[in-house]
């Protein structure tokens, strides 16, 4: 056999190998891809599709129903006062929830990582435990704790003859719901930040300590800048989750009159689709919420990146 044939045979073999490998790879991705098409891509396109439609009832007694194209009419109608009010409420809720939750998560993560604290394991497990409690259950627990007849805080206040504030009243309900989110979310974000703190090689701190840095200076000047990417991502995911708040107000709703059925944008979408049987408006509103969420995420990342690049240029 000449060298040329060997080379050709080899290349033919590797060629057929690449082919089987490519086929195997496609088979491996296929389940995920098919599920993705059926349960993510198709629903998205279907929402877009019906958001431009509406049922038209004609005939004397509403005899014939037909689906007609209405262009952007559903979108225009979506911006009613109820929707705008729900967006304002949820933005207010997010402005309380996200900074407080991530502030606490960062503080606890730094304290866990600091050599100056004790009882770390207990605190870490205790603060993380609410992550194992579904939002519905935590809303139930806090909902009962907010009831004046059950709350230990009102009990204590009442024994001193002080009228306790109604936590489920209109003034503080946003804080009450935000507290549930803070309680449920701090632990997970703390663990994410804490894990990236653990990944920092400790000789950096050694060097800083030799240079006379205090633990607080190490935390502020070294640790926080290094884990900034983790903080940014937790911020982004928290914002996205905030705009979609649904389980907490839905669970608290039967306990108070303060929460309307359109308290959050998602509650309004749910009401439109399933209580008013108006899937077309619901579709348009969900597209608006989704586009709004993506726009805010994009804007946030753009601002953050600009800052990061600005630092690099200096």
């Amino acid at each position: 056999m000449s060298t040329a044939t060997v080379v050709r045979a080899k290349s033919r073999r590797s060629n057929s190998n690449t082919k089987t490998q490519t086929r195997a790879a496609w088979f491996m991705i296929a389940p995920a891809f098919v599920l993705f098409l059926l349960f993510m891509a198709a629903p998205i396109f279907y929402t877009l599709f019906i958001s431009f439609q509406r049922t038209k009832v004609s005939g004397l007694f509403g005899g014939t129903r037909e689906t007609i194209w209405v262009g952007f009419q559903n979108y225009v109608n979506s911006f009613d006062s109820e929707f705008l009010a729900s967006v304002v409420r949820v933005l207010g809720y997010g402005c309380i929830l996200v900074p407080v939750m991530l502030g606490l998560a960062l503080t606890f993560a730094l304290l866990l990582d600091s050599p100056r604290t004790r009882s770390k394991t207990f605190s870490r497990v205790a603060i993380f435990l609410p992550f194992a409690v579904p939002a519905v259950i935590s809303s139930l627990l806090w909902g009962f704790l907010y009831l004046p007849s059950v709350s230990p805080f009102s009990y204590i206040l009442n024994t001193f003859g002080i009228q306790s504030p109604n936590v489920l009243g209109p003034d503080v309900i946003t804080f009450a719901i935000a507290n549930i989110g803070i309680w449920g979310g701090t632990g997970f974000n703390m663990i994410v930040i804490y894990t990236s703190l653990k990944a920092i090689p400790s000789d950096i701190y050694e060097a800083a300590r030799i240079d006379g840095c205090s633990e607080r200076q190490i935390a502020l000047r070294i640790k926080i800048p290094i884990v900034m990417p983790a903080i940014i991502m937790t911020f982004l995911f928290s914002m996205i989750a905030t705009l979609q708040v649904f389980a907490e107000p839905m669970t608290l709703k039967p306990m108070t009159n303060t929460i309307s059925s359109t308290w959050s944008p998602l509650m309004k979408i749910y009401r439109d689709a399933f209580q008013n049987s108006d899937i077309y408006s619901a579709a348009a509103t969900s597209v608006i919420v989704a586009v709004g969420t993506l726009a805010i995420s994009y804007f946030f990342l753009a601002v953050v990146q600009k800052r990061a690049f600005g630092q690099e240029e200096r």
Partner: peptide, 12 residues
């Protein structure tokens, strides 16, 4: 990045 909200109702 797709928010879950846009999926639930059309999935139904």
């Amino acid at each position: 990045l797709v928010p879950g909200v846009i999926l639930a109702i059309p999935q139904y």
